[in-house]
């Protein structure tokens, strides 16, 4: 497993950032290629709403 991680870090990284854009921007400033996925937790993380939505969607 450790070998695989080390191998991965030897290669050119392809990074997908989900959610907060700030992490992607930090990497872009270091000239690392990043694919940004806009993602927020369902219902903004409101558990009461998540429970209702699970029944209705």
């Amino acid at each position: 497993m450790e070998d695989k991680v080390e191998d991965l870090l030897q290669e050119e990284l392809v990074i997908i950032n989900m959610g907060l854009r700030g992490f992607a921007e930090s990497l872009e400033q270091q000239e690392v290629e990043v694919v940004q996925v806009d993602w927020i937790p369902p219902a903004g993380g409101d558990q009461e709403m998540i429970d209702i939505l699970e029944k209705l969607m």
């Binding site: 927020i40 369902p42 219902a43 903004g44 409101d46 709403m49 939505l53 209705l56 969607m57």
Partner: peptide
């Protein structure tokens, strides 16, 4: 309303 709440 479900989509509004789900997507925020």
């Amino acid at each position: 309303i479900r989509k509004v709440v789900q997507t925020n």
